[in-house]
Design a protein around this nucleic acid. Structure first.
Length: 288
DNA sequence: CACTTGACCTGTCCGC
DNA sequence: TGCGGACAGGTCAAGT
C-alpha cells in the first residue's frame, strides 16, 4: 500500500479538501470494502460533518461530528480521491493524474457531500477497507494497541529506534523494518531505500546490527520518509493523492526499482532479490 | 512466544 | 495476440 509518506500526503490533502463538509449519502459496492456499512450505521454518517483527518501508521482516521470515526486502510492499491462539484475527475485532473472520470470500476465506497462534491474510495485489489466506529473506541482496537511508534515524531530518538528491535532479534533487519509493531509506517519502498542509505544488507539478522548501524538506519528512515512527504509520496503503480495526482519520490529513489542500473555511490550494478518474501533491491558492494 | 509462509484480489508484464 | 506464471506500496491467520 501506500506507506507512511503516501498516507500522510493523502491526509494533508483531505484536510484541505473535505474538512467542514457534510455527508449526504454513502454507498459501497462490496461488503468486503466496508464491512459494517449497514443501515444501522447511517445514523452516524448521514448529516455528519467532517471534523478532522488524522493518521496513525498507515491508517487514516476521519473524525465526524457524531463522535464516530471512519477508519481506513488502503493496503496495496487503495486510493481516496476527492471530486469537486465542478468536475467528474479528481481535483488535480488532468496533470499527473492516474484516475479518469469517477466513479470507475475499482470504486468500492462513495461518500457524497451536501454541496454535491464526492470522496471516492477506489481499490483495485479489494485488500483495503473502511470501518466506522466510535471515536473513543479507536485507541482500543488491536492494531492501535500493538502498532509501534511514529518514526518522524520530534521526540523519537535513535536509541528509542534501536530499542524497538530487541523484540525481533533473530529475524532479518528487512523483516523487522516491515513489522508495524516495531516501527510504524515503513513499507517495502522505504525499507529498501533506508537500508541502502545506511549501507546495511537486508538479510543481516537484527542481533548482528551494531549501535552505529542502528543510528545510521534511524537517520535514513527519517531522511527518506521526510523527503518523500516533501515530494508527495511514491507512485510505483497506483498511488495517487487526494486530488488524483501522482507523487514524485520515485524520481529520487536511490535503489528501489533500480535493478540493472549503477549504484549512485559506487557504480556497482543494483540487483533485485527476495528477502522476507518481498522484492528487495540492493547494491551488493555497499550493502554487505 | 518468535518466526515464516500462504492467502486475500485484480491487473499487468514477460516469455513461450 | 493467446496463455500461463510471476509479481505488485500490506497485513493476517495459519503453520513450524
Amino acid at each position: 500500500m501506500p506507506e507512511l509518506p503516501e498516507v500522510e500526503t493523502i491526509r494533508r490533502g483531505l484536510q484541505e479538501l473535505i474538512v467542514g463538509k457534510i455527508i449526504k449519502t454513502v454507498s459501497s459496492d462490496t461488503i468486503k470494502s466496508f464491512p459494517n456499512a449497514k443501515n444501522d450505521v447511517n445514523q452516524f454518517l448521514i448529516n455528519a460533518k467532517i471534523k478532522s483527518i488524522r493518521r496513525r501508521a498507515k491508517v487514516l482516521l476521519i473524525d465526524l461530528s457524531t463522535s464516530y470515526t471512519l477508519v481506513i486502510h488502503l493496503k496495496m492499491t487503495g486510493q481516496l480521491v476527492f471530486v469537486s462539484n465542478k468536475s467528474r475527475f479528481g481535483a488535480g485532473h488532468p496533470n499527473d493524474s492516474l484516475v479518469g472520470a469517477l466513479p470507475d470500476k475499482s470504486t468500492r465506497v462513495t461518500f457524497d457531500f451536501t454541496d454535491d462534491s464526492h470522496l471516492f474510495f477506489n481499490d483495485q485489489r479489494k485488500f483495503g477497507w473502511v470501518r466506522l466506529m466510535s471515536t473513543v473506541e479507536v485507541p482500543n482496537i488491536d492494531f492501535m494497541k500493538k502498532v509501534g511508534p511514529e518514526p518522524l515524531e520530534a521526540d523519537f530518538t535513535a536509541s528509542d529506534f534501536a530499542d524497538r528491535f530487541k523484540r525481533r532479534a533473530k529475524t532479518t533487519i528487512k523483516a523487522a523494518l516491515l513489522d508495524q509493531t516495531v516501527i510504524a509506517g515503513i513499507g517495502n519502498i522505504y525499507a529498501d531505500e533506508s537500508l541502502w542509505g545506511a549501507k546495511i544488507n537486508p538479510k543481516r539478522l537484527v542481533n548482528t546490527i551494531t549501535k552505529a548501524e542502528f543510528t545510521r538506519l534511524y537517520k535514513e528512515v527519517r531522511l527518506v520518509m521526510n523527503l518523500s512527504i516533501e515530494k508527495g509520496g511514491s507512485t510505483n503503480r497506483n498511488y495517487v493523492n487526494a486530488e488524483g495526482k501522482k507523487g514524485s519520490y520515485m524520481d529520487f529513489a536511490r535503489v528501489f526499482r533500480r535493478e540493472g542500473l549503477a549504484c549512485l555511490r559506487c557504480g556497482t550494478e543494483i540487483v533485485k532479490l527476495k528477502v522476507a518474501g518481498r522484492g528487495t533491491h540492493i547494491c551488493p558492494n555497499c550493502q554487505r
